[in-house]
Structure formats: structure tokens, C-alpha cells
Design a protein around this nucleic acid. Structure first.
Lengths: 252, 252
DNA sequence: GAGTGGTCTAGACCACTGC
DNA sequence: CAGTGGTCTAGACCACTCG
């Protein structure tokens, strides 16, 4: 990160674009994250360092970092430092997969990639991913198992430009979550997502994969994931068998 | 709220029950809310006032309130004061009902109560609501309409002790959300909830109410709602028709 | 012990609301 | 104008981690 001169044109009253100092600091840190200045898992400079660079007090930097920690962009660890959040952290796993067993403890999950092919973006994919009609996309199909049993079938649409080099072999070789792979191999960190959930009847192919009866009710979970700057980088549709699991959501 | 002497046995190091001052302040404010010292929608004392009462600095009170505002317990309004959050606030509505139309704008919703009767808590209800087996409970059935069409059938289990006096007439007479009614008439404010979502096939009765085909896939949304102090006070099961709507969830 | 984040204070000033 | 929350500062000290 480069050094900064003062930027605080705090401007009393007459500025319609007023934003407090700590938000500007937050913006700079965000930019640096976006630019990959510090990689996921790494420590960012200490609050004192940042305060010195930005010519503000520690408290102001602190407030900026507080907000980013609340948004799961950064992770504070007392006595050690502040770290860029990473999907490699196992705690991040259930932040995006809200599936828990109906009874018993959380069981081991395993991702089984089925297919991975190239295609051109149709109207819906283009609109959702913010790319142009006909732009290259990559489509992945996979099954998620819990405790050895298939529970989810996912179909995942990715912008071909960003995920160039993604193949079925890469997927099969990788241990760990998909987002962890995206982060370490493609430098794309998922920061936020929206899910739209409906109930649908299982088609034949899905029923076979999940080893359930055709027309069984399934959850259809459509997800759009965003990276820094609200940029959509993944569109997926999952079909969840809720025979032994349920989608768990906490309403704050 | 009574005045307080100093409580800050901050105790360096040797206290395993260490908690910072602002959390103790938060605890006191929480207690006062729980005791109904300030009603939903009312203002609580100013930060300066509270600081004086607790013999701490404004900043410490501020941090306590910050956390409570983040938890939607309080609502800050610059220049006016800090207010007890209320379900009467229309913004609170979609915090608990995460249903949006598949296309088009959010349409007007209407709750149509069907039945309301007394019963004794069975094993599951007793466990979920934290009451004793056989304790009185109230069961409400109702339909939620969006844009005039039935979309949700709810079956709601309430502890009879807390909601004594709830009848079908009361429900029918009340305009506004259920939680708003609970808050204003029974002094019970829902603060948090957990939902478990599964896909199920519509039974005949539900299918008729929702005007869909029997065995159509539906979302089964089981919710436990809590008031202050993590006390469960509502258990409900909703069946959502997702023909024209979907459950929307934001993953932070 | 040095360095990190975490808490707390006291005071200044700004932005917003309503009288 | 007074009163509220919102921002920013400077400094002190505590709790935690690691060498």
C-alpha cells in the first residue's frame, strides 16, 4: 500500500458527498484487499502502522477495521494481529452452506465433481453474472455428500474469463471447499451471497443421483455469490434432499 | 432504572469471569428492556444520562448501545435519541418473513386467521417452548396472502401462560403483524428466531387452502422465536407455496 | 519484554432534530 | 438555540501471543 497525503476534506455542512474519515480509511483498505495487496490468511499492518500511514488516530483506523470485521472481510486476533478472512478457515464453511443434519452432529462432507464443461452465456447467465451474451462460461456439476450419502446436486455457472484453467481434474485433485479453491487458485474471494429458495419436485436424473424417488420434494437453492465491490462471480443452483438434513437460518 | 454504584471489579488477570465494562452496561440496559422499563418505540435516556448513571464515560455507554443496535434491539436516530426497537416499525417486517415475489415488486400482505384453540403441550412443544409437559398452550392457524392470493399456511404454538386472552376475535380485529400484536398486547417482543427449512409434499387440506394440487412441493419452514434472554416464546410451522414467491436469504 | 488488539477516559467539534 | 447522536483525537492501561 502506498503512502497517503491527507484526504480529509471533511467539509462541514456543504458537502453532499460527506463521508466520515473512517469510511475513507475503510475504502482504502478495501481497495488494497481488492488489489490483492494482502492475501487471504495473511496479516494486514497493525492498527498503529495504518494510523501512521493515513495520518489519523488509532481509534479511527479501529472503527474502519471494526466494520470490516463485522462484514467478515477481516479477522481480528488479540495479541497477534488482523488477518484477511479466508475460506480456508473451517469456520467459514457453514457461512455459505447452511445445511445441518436433522438429528445428530454435523457429519463430514465431501464434494464429488461430476462434469465440467465450457459454454457460452445465455441471457439469464449473462445478466446474473454481469457479462455479455455469448461470453465464455464454465459449468460444473457436482454432488455433495454428508456422511457418505449424497444430499446435494449443484450446477455451477462461472465466468470463463476469471476461472480459465478450471477443469474436472483440477476439481477432483483439490481437497477442501470450492470457495477455498477459487480463492487460492484464481484469486477470487467470495464475500457475500444471495439465495432464493423454492420447493420443487425431483427430476429423474437428480433423483438417481440422490438415490430418492422421482418427484420427491427438494429444496431448490439458487445462489449468486459476489466478490469485492459487489461483483457477481458465481451463479449456482443446488437441489437439496431434506430427508435427513435441513436448511438452517438464523434471523437476527 | 435505579442508580448504580460502581461495579467495575475489573480485576486484572485473575478473574475468569472477566467481562469489560461496556458489557456490564449492556447487561443493565438489557435487564431494563426485559423488565419493560422502556416500551418498544420509546426513547431510552441519552448517552450522557446513562454515562452519568453508570459512572462511566460516554464512549463506554456508546459501545454498549452500538452492540445492541447491531442486534436490532435498539435503534439510533441522530439528533433525536435512541429508541427501543419495535415490530410496529414497517422495516422490521421482512426481518422475520423472508418471502419475496419471484417477479415484480413486493405486494401487500394480509394475515387471515382461521382458528385459535387451547391445548396441552405435548412432548415436542414442551421441549421447544421450554415449558412443562401438559402446560397450557394456544394454537393458531392462519393463512398469509400476498396480493390477494394465499401463499402461506401457518400453525403457531404459543405458551398459554404468556398469551392468555388471545382469541380468534383478537386476531381478526388486529391490523398489523402478529409480532406487533404480541408486542403491544402481551408485552412480548420477539428478538431473534431460528428457521429450519425442508421441502415437503402438500397434504390435501393445505393444498385446498393454498389452491394448489395435492402433493405439490412446498417449503416447510419451522421457526422458533425467542424474546430477551434467549427465552423461546413461539414455535411455528409454515408451509410456503413457492409458485410465485421464494424464500430470500442473504449470506453475509 | 516487545508488539498486537481491546478497553476506557476526557474533551473537542460536527451533524441532525425540534423548539 | 439546546440537546441528541456521530466523529475524531491523544493518551493510559489491560489482555493476549510469541520469542
Amino acid at each position: 500500500m502506498l503512502e497517503f497525503a491527507l484526504m480529509a476534506q471533511q467539509s462541514t455542512k456543504d458537502s453532499p458527498t460527506f463521508s466520515p474519515l473512517y469510511r475513507q480509511i475503510k475504502g482504502f483498505i478495501l481497495q488494497a484487499l481488492e488489489a490483492g495487496e494482502w492475501r487471504p490468511g495473511e496479516a494486514i499492518p497493525s492498527e498503529m502502522d495504518l494510523a501512521a500511514r493515513f495520518n489519523v488516530s488509532q481509534g479511527t483506523v479501529r472503527k474502519a477495521i471494526d466494520e470490516m470485521a463485522a462484514e467478515n472481510l477481516l479477522l481480528r486476533r488479540q495479541g497477534k494481529g488482523t488477518f484477511v478472512a479466508s475460506h480456508a478457515d473451517p469456520r467459514a464453511f457453514f457461512r455459505f452452506l447452511r445445511l445441518i443434519p436433522l438429528k445428530g452432529d454435523i457429519d463430514q462432507s465431501k464434494s464429488v465433481p461430476l462434469e465440467c464443461w465450457r459454454a457460452k452465456a445465455g441471457q439469464e447467465a449473462a445478466r446474473t453474472l454481469g457479462i455479455k451474451l455469448g461470453d465464455p462460461i464454465i459449468i460444473v456439476r457436482r454432488v455433495l455428500q454428508f456422511g457418505g450419502k449424497p444430499v446435494v446436486v449443484d450446477e455451477i455457472y462461472l465466468p470463463g474469463e476469471i476461472f480459465a484453467g478450471l477443469t474436472l481434474e483440477v476439481l477432483k485433485d483439490y481437497q477442501g471447499s470450492l470457495y477455498s479453491l477459487f480463492e487460492s487458485r484464481f484469486g477470487v474471494r467470495m464475500v457475500r451471497a444471495e439465495e432464493r429458495i423454492r420447493a420443487v419436485a425431483a427430476d429423474r436424473a437428480t433423483a438417481e443421483l440422490l438415490r430418492i424417488a422421482e418427484t420427491s420434494p427438494l429444496l431448490s437453492v439458487e445462489r449468486v455469490s459476489y466478490t469485492y465491490g459487489n461483483k457477481p462471480v458465481e451463479w449456482r443452483r443446488g437441489l437439496y434432499s431434506t430427508a435427513d438434513h435441513c436448511y438452517f437460518n438464523e434471523l437476527g
